[in-house]
Structure formats: structure tokens, C-alpha cells
Design a protein around this nucleic acid. Structure first.
Lengths: 343, 343
DNA sequence: TCCCTCTACGGAAACGTTTTCGTATCGTTG
DNA sequence: CAACGATACGAAAACGTTTCCGTAGAGGGA
């Protein structure tokens, strides 16, 4: 018998008191059973469970939230983009949170500016969420977070590494060093860089890491080729680089930029990795099937997501704790887009 | 003065009664002002607004949900995947819902089987969401939805086209026809197909459309090459097809499969589009930078998302209405991966 | 037997809204 | 001037939980 679906249309949903009446106890006892409190006789517990089952009772979360003052909700603020990194991070986070019994509400913003972010955070606070996660990869987002009230646990992901707030990030610098050193070790005299948008911390960190690796190796630091994250802009940058014979190694700030570069090189008749070596960043699932398969840097987004959840949980359970910081170090995935320079 | 952030730690957040006291009215009048009810003197309205401002008052959504019996939440059930289609659909939906003042809670499931889906839907019902959206592209999901109680508005996206439920879908058959006819019109005698996983409606629809287009043109229908959605499986299928000289045209069920096929063809020395033409599906942002730029079928996910929201809204406002069905027809995007067959 | 301490449960007051109903004031009308 | 319908607002009862406190009964030690 499925009482749930046979419920009369428009009839009030069963509440705790209904369960209590059927089980012959008070509604507080039902509450106790539901929340796993001790001091309930086994026999009573069973009667209550049976009544719950029979009525198809489901607790009203709104009432619970009102009574306790806290909800099992986590608010997420994310940008409206389908970039691989943020998307897979978010998906992994939602799954992890669901496992822990939390429901995550995501609020998308069109652009990551101050007003949008404060509005979105305000919105979540209005919902009395237990905690907030902001995917805040740009400078403007960092500023916005600085002025957010601190009375609700908040963790930033990919945020400003120079702010003191609690933060989970990928070590962009280390990743960029990995890529750059790998190219230098293959014998290239220097490495050119096609960067992401300057206002992104990710992009800035990768530039820093690339530059540091070059300086440490005593290599010349060529000018940065600025781009956004798209294959289209990678293509444009690639066309420029393709006509410079001295360019033999390129580190692209992400895999889609690298794809655009590969395309440009191919059109200009410069073979990869024969004439030019290319390394990307992100390890998107299809990177292994680019032409040629792309050597790239892999940040483990699953780990970022689960660490984010861990950090948020400890912020929730101990709001007085200082700011926490977690950094995930990426790894290098070697494929076929890197070789020794020609000649 | 920012009273919000200067609130004493641990102090109770201001409630409606606090605002009322400060404004010298009763809390019901505050409620009236908040909800835009008429019959409030302009002067009173201003006093109330001032008090709200001064206290940094924000209404408690849980209390409102409890009192009204409905929440401004939309529950989404989605698979834990970073496939481009579902991901961009979801992002667009979240943005559209936010604009309408709804908060969307997404519940990820590891796999799209019956128990996971019913559990996730149950979870949302427990939260008393105003409506539910299930991204249900597989047969198992379709079955699961059949047994979900109908007392909450629910719309399926990419669900079973043969079920009567309210549904928003992409016209997979039309898209596949577009691709197949385009290849036939380029002069190919027939078109081979690398399909998505058989349990996906999307995949099945694309197979049907491809087959229908071939039959209508009197072309031979070659056997389907089954794959999943990944570039890896596209690559494997591509290796097989590359060694069959009679294969001159391939329709891939999505762009990442197509990428794998391009890679396989390139490795086997078969040029695209010189020897083999390829058409994809999805129009991922980087498809224009594949080697060669990919001709593909573009479903407009923004439209799917906004239609989904529209349909859900009408289900919410009129729960007695029958099931609604919306179909979005994709378009063909021509690039450089299609040419006349060799010889 | 008396007192005390557990255990198992009920009574009742929160939590912060919305909503229904009631009422005082005021301008209009017959 | 009495009667009446707006208009502007307040009183009080929901909504369905949790939680604090109280209490009856069982068991144990002096």
C-alpha cells in the first residue's frame, strides 16, 4: 500500500501530531524518535515508526528550520559559466554535500562584480543557510567578500590567496611551475605563455608560477600573451605565436586555450610537438584526444570539492575558529604535445 | 552606518516585531509593507521602511514557508556529470530561476537509477519545494518518474518522449535528420553513426533520426557503432571506421565523440573532410577549434532552460492543468568537417 | 518504608511569519 | 445628523517543529 501517493488531493499533509495520535503518544515522542534521541522505549519507537510509515509522514523542514534557527542548507554563489573547472567542482561539491545530508542551493550571478556577489550572499543569508560557499576566482569577487558580514560561515574557493579569509584553492603557481619546468627540461630555451583574463586569480597565479620557473632556470621571460579562457582567444594568440620562429614552447593557461593554439599552429603549418611544444591546464576529459593528445596540468577538482565541504563543516561546527586555508597541489599529465625543440 | 555587520555576535537577529516596535506599528503592518499589500498609508510605509533599513532586518524565509505552506524553492535532480549539455542547461536554468526570485536546490545523484531518483525526489518533497525539475535522460529515470506522486509540480527535461508526463526536450530526431541529410546532400552514398549509450533517450532519438533520414533518401543503413559519450569511446569507434574504406561520412552522437573520431582518423592517415566527413552534436564552445573545425548540430540549451522554467511556472500556478510538452528544435552549424566524398 | 535517582514520556512555550477577522476613524450621502 | 462604506490598522490564531521543564513510575540503598 502506498499511502503517499493515494493521499487525497488538497488534504493537509500528515504532521507530527497525526503520527503521534496514531501511535498513541505525544508529538514530542515522535520528535525524539525522528532525531534519534535516547530515552525512548524500543516498543514505543517501533510503534512510532510504524505510524510514520502508514501515514507516509515526512517532516516539514521549514518548521524545523524555524524552531532550530538553522537549516541544513548550504548556499553556493557561482558564476554563470560552463567552464570546465568551476562546473566539475560544483558538481562534485553538490554530490558530497548530498551525501552528508545537506541540500545545496546555488545562486548564479551573471558577472562576478561586487554588487552581484553581495546580493547573492545576502540572499543566502536571508534563507538562514548553515554556510556559504563562494566560487570567487576574480579580484572583484575578492573585494566583495571583504565586506560581507562574518556571522555566517563562509568559505571561498579559488579566491584571493592574499586575503586572510578561509579559503580553498588550487596551487596555481605550483601547477604553472610544473608545466614550465617540464618544457624547459625538454630542452627549450624559454617558454611562452598565453594567459587567462588578468582579473582571475587563477590566471595571475599561473603567470607568476610560469615567470618564477623561468627566472629560476635563468631563462629569458618573454611577454605574456593575454587572452580569455576560450578556444577562440587561444586561436588568436596562436596565430601570433605561429609566425614567430623563435617560439618553440607554449604554456597555455587552460586546455581550451591550448586547443585554439593547436588549431592555429596546424593552420600555419607548424607541427606540434615537432616545431612547437604545448602544455595546457585543467585536464579536461577530452584533452587526451586533441591533435596531438595534450600534455597538461591536472588539478583534482574532486579533492577541491571535498576539502571545501570539510572546511565548511568545521566552520559550521566551530564558528569561533580562525580562518582556515587549504591548498590542493596539481599534478602533471604527460601526453604527446611536448618534445625537444627542433634543430 | 552598517547595522548589519555591527550586529552583536550571538544577539538575536531582528524580527518583524522589532521593526514594528521601532516604527510604532504592529508587526502585521510590517508584513503588509513587505508584501506590497494596499491599504497602508504612505507615511506609515515610509516609517516601516526606515525601521527595516535601520535594523538591517531581513525576513525569515523559513517562517514564511511555514506560514504559507509553500516555499520559493525549486528542486532539481541531476546526474553527477560534467557533460556539456546537462551542465550548461543547469547553469542557464539556475540563472533564469534566480531572476524570477526562486532559489534552486540541486540534488546530484551518482547514477540515474530508480532508487536514486525516487530518493532525490522524495528529498525535495520533504523540503516542500514549489516544483521539481528532473534531468532524466535515461530509461531508468523515466521509469522512476512514473511512480513519483503527482502532488507536486514536476517537469522532466530530456525525458522519455513516449511518456505522457510534462516534458521539455530537444528534438533529437530532427537534429539527427539535419546532420544526416547534410552529409547526404554533400554527395555521400550513406552515413555511418557512432551513437551514445543506448539507455539514453537522446542517443536513441538521434539513432532514429539518422536511420529515418537514410531510409527517406533510399540510402543503405549501416550498423550502428555503439559508444558512450566520451572522446575515448569515439576514438575507439573511429579506429574501426578508419580502416573501412567505404566509410566516407560519420555522424557522431556528440561533439566529444566526434573529437575522438577526428583523432582516430588523423592517426590512421585519413583526412577530414578530404577522405571522411564528420558531423557532431551539441556545439560545445570549442568545437570551432577542433582540427578541422567541426560541423555540428546545435540545441539551444538556454532556450531549453527558459522553457523548462516557463513550463514549471505554469504547472505551479495551475496544478490542475494537464501535462505540457515543449520541444526545442536544434539547428545545423556548418564548419569545415564536411565535404564531398573522395573520388 | 522512605527517599532518591534514573527512565520514559507529556505539557507548554517558543520560533517568525501569514492570514482571518475585528474595529476605530473618516468622508460621503440621504 | 444618522447611516454607511472605505480605509488603515491591531488582536489573535494558525503553521509544524524543537526544547525546556515537569512528572509518573520503576528500581535501589539505608
Amino acid at each position: 500500500m502506498d499511502h503517499t501517493s493515494s493521499a487525497v488531493r488538497g488534504a493537509r499533509e500528515p504532521a507530527m501530531t497525526d503520527v503521534a495520535r496514531l501511535a498513541g503518544v505525544s508529538h514530542q515522542t515522535v520528535s525524539r524518535v525522528l532525531n534519534g534521541h535516547p530515552n525512548v522505549r524500543e516498543q514505543t519507537r517501533l510503534r512510532v515508526r510504524a505510524a510514520i510509515e502508514e501515514l507516509g509522514y515526512r517532516p516539514n523542514r521549514a518548521a524545523r528550520a524555524l524552531a532550530t534557527g538553522r537549516s541544513q542548507h548550504i548556499g553556493v554563489v557561482a558564476q554563470n559559466s560552463t567552464l570546465y573547472g568551476p562546473a566539475s567542482l560544483l558538481a562534485a561539491f553538490e554530490l558530497a554535500a548530498a551525501v552528508q545530508g545537506f541540500v545545496v542551493s546555488v545562486r548564479r550571478v551573471r558577472v562576478l562584480d561586487r554588487s552581484s556577489i553581495t546580493e547573492a550572499v545576502e540572499h543566502h543569508r536571508e534563507q538562514r543557510v548553515a554556510g556559504i560557499v563562494v566560487i570567487a576566482p576574480t579580484a572583484a569577487a575578492g573585494e566583495a567578500l571583504a565586506e560581507v558580514p562574518t556571522d555566517v560561515p563562509l568559505v571561498a574557493v579559488d579566491g584571493d590567496p592574499d586575503r586572510g579569509a578561509t579559503l580553498v584553492t588550487v596551487d596555481q603557481e605550483a601547477g604553472a611551475r610544473l608545466a614550465t619546468r617540464h618544457l624547459l627540461e625538454a630542452g627549450h630555451r624559454t617558454v611562452w605563455h598565453v594567459s587567462g583574463p588578468a582579473e582571475w586569480f587563477d590566471a595571475a597565479g599561473r603567470v607568476r608560477g610560469w615567470q618564477a620557473a623561468l627566472e629560476e632556470a635563468g631563462a629569458e621571460v618573454p611577454p605574456v600573451n593575454p587572452a580569455d579562457w576560450s578556444a577562440a582567444s587561444g586561436y588568436r594568440a596562436g596565430l601570433l605565436l605561429a609566425r614567430m620562429p623563435e617560439v618553440t614552447a607554449v604554456f597555455a593557461a587552460n586546455d581550451h586555450l591550448a586547443l585554439g593554439i593547436l588549431r592555429a599552429m596546424s593552420e600555419r603549418g607548424r607541427s606540434v610537438p615537432g616545431d612547437v611544444s604545448v602544455v595546457g591546464f585543467d585536464d579536461v576529459p577530452e584533452a587526451a584526444y586533441f591533435t596531438p593528445p595534450l600534455t597538461t596540468v591536472r588539478p583534482d577538482f574532486d579533492t577541491v570539492a571535498s576539502e571545501t565541504l570539510n572546511v565548511l563543516m568545521s566552520c559550521i561546527s566551530d564558528p569561533e575558529a580562525g580562518s582556515i586555508r587549504r591548498t590542493i597541489t596539481p599534478t602533471l599529465v604527460e601526453r604527446d604535445s611536448v618534445a625537444a625543440p627542433p634543430g
